[in-house]
């Protein structure tokens, strides 16, 4: 039985869902530890949700890379919370794995490195080290089907969201505004990038730890979900959507009504999953 994990747009939406018992499992960002488009929750907000959650499962998103000086803050966060209260910790920096395995929390760990888990053998190896893993959505749907068919256990996949297509430690907006002598805000501001000869726009956002660029629209798997084997959980991310629209997305998946999703005025596509990427190596004979 596939379960959904939803990433709410805001603390307010998370609070509502907890109160309404709308969903069974949520994924929330804390501090600046995630790569979420939205601001991460404070410790107080996190504790509030934990105290109110009842039977709801709460997992946390710690998807960024951590530099040496960040480790102390991460360690301090783990000390201030009861890790047992959290269902899963989604991470992509193997330093987090090392820190938590040393404390005996292997069963909480979900490795989700966006671009890395692109074949069945690596998925299996990482799954053996963790409680679970999330397969990359930077492969074609055909590749995803084959990958899942080749597994002997269930894993997680991305069902809906807006992929991060570029993750940099550089504060690209700040530096550019300095270079151009422009007085522009970077915090909590969304800009978009448009390549000089194209029309598509890609959201770019600057965080305390660097810059993220997101894909132009929203990828989604819906009809395909029933055809996929070895899937334990499906992640539904909010991306840059507002609460109102994301509520519809959630309803669409909970009630299995594709039209709710398709009626939204957003750019829906199969994203990078629609075709096989090209220009990779030719094999040696």
């Amino acid at each position: 039985m596939k379960q959904f994990i939803f990433e709410p747009v805001s603390f307010r939406q998370a609070k509502q869902w907890v109160k309404q018992k709308k969903v069974e499992h949520i994924l929330i960002p804390v501090f600046d530890f995630s790569l979420s488009y939205r601001k991460g929750y404070t410790l107080k907000q996190f504790q509030y949700l934990i105290n109110q959650k009842g039977t709801m499962k709460i997992s946390i998103n710690m998807m960024r890379l951590f530099h040496e000086n960040d480790l102390e803050r991460v360690g301090s966060f783990f000390q201030q919370i009861h890790i047992e209260d959290i269902t899963y910790i989604f991470y992509s920096d193997l330093g987090i794995y090392q820190m938590l395995v040393a404390q005996g929390y292997q069963d909480k760990l979900v490795y989700d490195a966006h671009t890395y888990l692109t074949n069945a053998r690596d998925v299996t190896e990482y799954a053996n080290l963790n409680q679970n893993v999330v397969v990359s959505n930077q492969i074609s749907i055909d590749e995803l089907k084959t990958l899942l068919d080749n597994l002997s256990r269930s894993v997680m996949i991305h069902g809906f969201g807006q992929s991060i297509i570029f993750y940099s430690r550089r504060k690209l907006l700040t530096r550019y505004f300095e270079y151009r002598h422009l007085k522009q805000r970077t915090e909590q501001m969304t800009y978009t990038l448009q390549e000089e000869f194209r029309t598509e726009q890609y959201p770019i956002v600057e965080k305390t730890f660097g810059t993220l660029i997101y894909e132009k629209g929203f990828y989604y798997l819906f009809e395909e979900l029933n055809q996929l084997s070895h899937v334990s959980h499906i992640l539904i991310h909010c991306g840059t959507l507002n609460e109102k629209y994301f509520e519809k997305v959630v309803d669409s998946y909970l009630t299995n009504q594709l039209e709710l999703l398709q009626n939204l005025p957003i750019d829906l596509s199969k994203g990078i999953m629609k075709e096989h990427s090209v220009l990779h190596k030719t094999k040696e004979n």
Partner: peptide, 19 residues
């Protein structure tokens, strides 16, 4: 410009797999 291995800009703009 990005962390190596974490960028798929090329994949999304040209369908060429950066990684």
């Amino acid at each position: 410009s990005s962390y190596s291995g974490r960028c798929v800009l090329s994949n999304h703009l040209t369908n060429r797999d950066a990684n």
